[in-house]
Design a protein around this nucleic acid. Structure first.
Lengths: 340, 340
DNA sequence: CTGAAAGCGCTAACAA
DNA sequence: TTGTTAGCGCTTTCAG
C-alpha cells in the first residue's frame, strides 16, 4: 500500500512464453481462448500469466487485428432523462457483448459539433458509433460519415441507410391525447418540446392527428423547450383561463413546471386542469400530484442500439432496420374528469 | 447516398509520405504538430493528408508511445443526479485536455464489481482512472490497483495515497441544519442516505454535530436510501406528529417524496413542516413548493478529478491532494419559521 | 498441436 | 530541417 511508484513495463506475451517455455504463438492462442492447444500446455501458460500478472495489450491487438472492440457514443447533454437512461443501458449491453465504450458529448446542436464528435471517436479507433441526436442537423452531419462505418442513430431521420432505434413517439402522443379525451375533456392543449426535436415534432403531430380524428378543435401550441422552467412560464401564461382543462406536456419536467404554476395560481390538479407528461422519469411518481405520463422504454432502446451496431461490426452491413420501442400510459393522479 | 459498403484500408502515414514525397517521419512530425518542419513541407504534407483523408491510427500510436490518451471512469448507476453531472463535467474536461473517455458502470456495490471494472478499464488500456464510488468497499478494492496507475477517487476514504475530490459534505450538513435552527425551529430531524454511503454519513455527522453545538436534542434518524420512494415512506410514518417542524433530507429526491407524503396527509410545507434538501437538482426549483436545498458543485468536482488524473498521468505521482468543492445554501420556498 | 516469420502503423533515437 | 533504422506486442500465415 502506498507504493504508487513509477510505472514498470508490463509483461508481454514473449515474457509469458519464455516463462512457460512455449512460443509466444501458443500464449496468444491461450489468451484468445482458442482450442487448438494441449491441455497441459494451456495450464502451464495460464499459470505463467497469473504469476507474471500478464495483461493483454489492447493497442497491439488492435493494431494487428484492426478492431478495438470499442464502440463510441456521441450524444448531447446527459441531463436529459432519456439520454441518461439510454447511456446506462448502452454501457451495460456493450460490456455484456465484450465491448468497451467511449463517450463523447456534443456541447451544441450544430453540425460542426457532430462532426467533431465523430472525428474524435474515429481517431480514437472505435469500431462503430451510436449517435443519440434528435435535431434536424442529423442528415447533413451523417452524410460525412465514412462509408462502411457501423452507425446506429437514436432518432428517426429522413435517411434510411443505417439502423434507427427510437421510441414510438406517435403512439406516445396518441395515448396521452386519447386518455384525456376518454376522460371527457372537450379538447387537449399541448406543450411541445423544442421545434428542433424530431421526437417533440412526432409527439405533437400525433396529438394533433388524434384530436382531428376525434373531430375536436386543435388548439394553438404552448411552446416549451424541455425545461421545467419553460413549463412554468407556459403555466403562468394560461393560469387564468378556465377553458383549458387538459394539457399534454411533451416531457415530465415541463409537466412539473406547469403544475407548479397552476398551484401558485391556486388551481387544482386534476380538479381544474388535468396534466399528462411524457417519459415517466423516476421522480414523476413523487410529483405533487403524482404524474400521469407516457412511459418510454429507454433501456430497451439503448440495448437495441448496441445490438444493432455490434451486429453491423461483426457481420458487415445489414439492411437497416427501424426499431420502435413500445410506450405505454401510466395512470397516476394528475388526470381526472373535467368538472361538470 | 447509401454507399455504406465494405470497409477499405485507411491511408497510413506511409501513403501520405509517398504522396507528399517526404519520409513518413516528417509526416509524423506534422501530425503531431512539432515545429521542426519546414513551412512549405508542412503545407504539402497537410495537403496530402487532406486529399487522402488521412486519419492517425491510435492503436499504432498507443503501441509505440505507451499512452492512449484515454481516461477511464468507473462508477455506479448513472441515475444519481450527482454522478450524472460529474460524468458530464468529466467528459468535457477530458475532451478539453485531449483525452477520450471510457466509461464502465458497476452494477452492484461489491468488491468484485469494482475489481471487474478496473480490470476491464486496464485491459482497454486507459492511462488513468477516475473512480466514483462512495461505499466502504473502496479501501479494500483500491488495494488491488496496480502500483503507479494514476487514480482519483470521488469520495473521501481512509486511504490517502491517491488524490480525492469530493463535495464539502460536512458544510452541507451544517448549512442545512443551521438554516433551520436560525429560522427558529427547536430542533431538526434528518433523513440520511443509505448507511453504506460516505457522503450520507458525513452529512449526517455534521447535522448531529451542529445540533449538539447549539445545545439541541439530536432526534433519531429517519432512515432513507436516496430514493423519493423512501422519502415518501418516511413522510408517511411521521405525518401525524406535530412535534416535527423541520427536516433535513440528504438529497432532493427524498425531500420530494417527503413533501408528497406531507401533502397527502394534509400538512402544509413550510407552514407545518420546513424541508431542506441536498444537491440542488435542476428540478428542485420546480418542486411544489420550490425546494430550499444545499447546492453541490458537481461540475467542479468532475473537472478537478480529471485535472488531477491527467496531472498524475503526465507528471508522474504527485503528493495526493484532497480537494473539497464548496457547497452553499439555496433558499427557496420549502422553509419558514415554525408556527408560533 | 506447436512454432517461425512477417508485419500492422507509428514514433524514439540517431544520423545526415 | 529531414531521413533512416528499429521495434513496440500482438496476430496472421504458413510450416512442421
Amino acid at each position: 500500500m502506498g507504493t504508487r511508484s513509477v510505472r514498470v513495463r508490463e509483461p508481454s506475451m514473449n515474457d509469458v512464453a519464455r516463462h512457460a517455455g512455449v512460443s509466444s504463438q501458443t500464449v496468444s492462442r491461450v489468451a484468445n481462448g482458442l482450442d487448438n492447444v494441449g491441455e497441459s500446455t494451456k495450464e502451464r501458460v495460464l499459470a505463467s500469466m497469473r504469476e507474471l500478472g500478464y495483461r493483454p495489450n489492447s493497442a497491439a491487438r488492435a493494431l494487428r487485428s484492426g478492431r478495438f472492440r470499442d464502440i463510441g457514443v456521441a450524444m448531447f447533454t446527459l441531463s436529459s432523462y432519456g439520454n441518461m437512461r439510454m447511456l446506462d443501458a448502452i454501457t451495460q449491453a456493450a460490456s455484456e457483448l465484450g465491448y468497451s465504450l467511449t463517450l463523447d458529448l456534443m456541447r451544441e446542436p450544430t453540425q460542426r459539433a457532430v462532426s467533431g464528435a465523430v472525428t474524435r471517436l474515429l481517431d480514437q479507433g472505435v469500431d462503430g458509433i451510436v449517435m443519440m441526436i434528435e435535431a434536424e442537423l442529423t442528415d447533413s452531419a451523417m452524410a460525412e460519415l465514412p462509408a462502411g462505418l457501423p452507425v446506429v442513430v437514436n432518432t428517426s431521420t429522413a435517411r434510411t441507410d443505417y439502423p434507427v432505434v427510437d421510441g414510438d413517439q406517435a403512439a406516445a402522443g396518441r395515448l396521452a391525447t386519447e386518455h384525456l379525451l376518454d376522460l371527457g375533456h372537450r379538447t387537449v392543449w399541448h406543450v411541445p418540446g423544442p421545434v428542433s426535436s424530431y421526437s417533440a415534432m412526432r409527439r405533437r403531430d400525433a396529438w394533433a392527428a388524434t384530436l382531428r380524428a376525434a373531430g375536436r378543435e386543435v388548439p394553438e401550441v404552448l411552446q416549451g423547450d424541455w425545461t421545467a422552467e419553460s413549463g412554468y412560464r407556459v403555466g403562468l401564461s394560461i393560469a387564468e383561463r378556465d377553458d383549458i382543462t387538459a394539457i399534454f406536456a411533451s416531457n415530465d419536467q415541463m409537466a412539473l413546471g406547469l403544475m407548479r404554476a397552476l398551484h401558485e395560481a391556486g388551481k387544482d390538479v386534476p380538479g381544474d386542469v388535468s396534466i399528462v407528461g411524457c417519459d415517466d422519469t423516476t421522480e414523476s411518481a413523487s410529483y405533487w400530484p403524482p404524474l400521469t405520463t407516457v412511459h418510454q422504454d429507454f433501456e430497451e432502446q439503448g440495448r437495441q442500439a448496441v445490438h444493432a451496431v455490434v451486429a453491423e461490426i461483426e457481420n458487415g452491413p445489414v439492411t437497416p432496420a427501424r426499431i420502435l420501442a413500445p410506450v405505454w400510459l401510466v395512470e397516476r393522479s394528475s388526470t381526472g374528469r373535467p368538472r361538470a
